[in-house]
């Protein structure tokens, strides 16, 4: 039991440490976004492993919050990087990935 617990925590801790290395090294912002997403998933896996080893369901609602937070964080930072485009090539913002409704409103005189 304790050997299995130690092996589980070692595997998850090593994965989290390697994700932290990529988070520190990452040459661009998107690498850090990917590393943060993976790190939060590894953290939720660690919480679930703790709950399973201790048979204590107190951290189970925290899992829902952490998975929500990973999704919202990565999507919002990805949208932010997509909005950092400085110049539109086609002139109407179509290459910025704007939705069709926004383009149609932009074309009206």
């Amino acid at each position: 039991m304790t050997v299995v617990g130690f092996a589980l925590y070692a595997l998850i801790g090593a994965g989290a440490l390697l994700a932290l290395v990529r988070l520190a090294l990452g040459p661009s912002l998107l690498d850090r976004v990917v590393a943060t997403d993976t790190l939060l998933v590894i953290i939720s896996a660690g919480l679930a492993v703790y709950a399973a080893l201790e048979r204590s369901p107190t951290v189970v609602p925290v899992l829902v919050v952490v998975s929500l937070l990973a999704f919202v964080g990565s999507v919002s930072v990805a949208r932010y990087i997509g909005g950092m485009l400085l110049r539109s090539r086609t002139g109407d913002g179509r290459d910025l990935g704007l939705p069709l409704a926004a383009e149609a409103q932009g074309e009206q005189p």
Binding site: A16, L17, L18, A19, D31, T38
Partner: peptide
């Protein structure tokens, strides 16, 4: 099941460190 999931977490960390660009790192992660 827990050991397999934890091993997958370790492979995600290894792939994040070793792979060359964003798409392949995302594939590992």
């Amino acid at each position: 099941c827990l050991l397999a999931g934890a091993a997958l977490c370790l492979t995600a960390g290894l792939g994040l460190v070793r792979f060359p660009d964003v798409l392949s790192r995302m594939h590992a992660g």
